[in-house]
């Protein structure tokens, strides 16, 4: 979706302000928000693409005004409400008013290390040969899906070169929408700064994105 999360190339946000000796969390609630979000994926049954989709579909003004973990918590509530794991009256009351959804699996302390170590690899066996090779010129599609996509606006419709191939990967756009994995070939596509930003751009800058095959056409 063409949301405010898709920030590449936007102006007006000011300088980057690094914090010296920054701690992993800045408040006790951030720790819990982080851990709740990770732990709820198991009983919730959603995938990471669905989480990202929930975060970026918050109302734009709310997204921009929220801190990072405030966005996480708002998206977590949304995912749980959609699946009936909690209900709006429980959120309002701040306590349990209805029985738990049956059959939900809980992450146990003993499982945490294994679950983190396994991660969620997205590489899949190819079912068809790759359409593009390293060095091929490609143009990204001028597409504007209202749903989750990982093709940022600033590269759409531009010509770049295949720099790396990564094999087949779970297709984020389909996975976020609950359509299953629909694996596709994944490439790193490099664009010259001037192709993306015009003649005034630094000629010694280039930018790449990782792009699934259906984002691309031959150029």
């Amino acid at each position: 979706m063409n949301g405010v999360h898709d920030m590449g190339g936007m102006h007006g946000f000011g300088p980057v302000v690094p914090e010296q000796d920054e701690p992993p969390f800045h408040a006790a609630w951030e720790r819990r928000a982080f851990a709740l979000t990770l732990a709820m994926a198991m009983p919730g049954g959603w995938n990471l693409d669905m989480s990202r989709s929930a975060r970026e579909s918050l109302p734009p003004a709310e997204y921009l005004a929220s801190s990072y973990y405030e966005i996480w918590i708002a998206a977590l509530e949304k995912l749980m409400l959609e699946r009936g794991l909690i209900t709006p009256d429980e959120v309002a009351a701040g306590r349990v008013l209805h029985p738990a959804k049956k059959g939900a699996r809980t992450l146990s302390p003993d499982d945490v290390a294994n679950v983190l170590y396994r991660g969620a690899p997205t590489g899949r066996e190819p079912s068809a040969p790759a359409r593009f090779r390293i060095g091929d010129r490609v143009r990204t599609r001028n597409m504007h899906p209202a749903t989750h996509t990982r093709l940022p606006r600033y590269v759409r419709g531009h010509v770049g070169e295949i720099e790396l191939t990564h094999g087949c990967h779970v297709f984020a756009d389909a996975h976020a929408a609950g359509r299953g994995e629909e694996p596709q070939w994944l490439y790193t596509v490099r664009f010259e700064g001037r192709e993306l930003w015009g003649a005034g751009s630094d000629p010694r800058v280039s930018v790449s994105v990782d792009a699934w095959e259906s984002y691309l056409e031959p150029a």
Partner: peptide, 10 residues
């Protein structure tokens, strides 16, 4: 300068 935008699970 080469910028890598992490748009997949890579």
């Amino acid at each position: 300068i080469r910028v890598w935008d992490s748009t997949s699970e890579v």
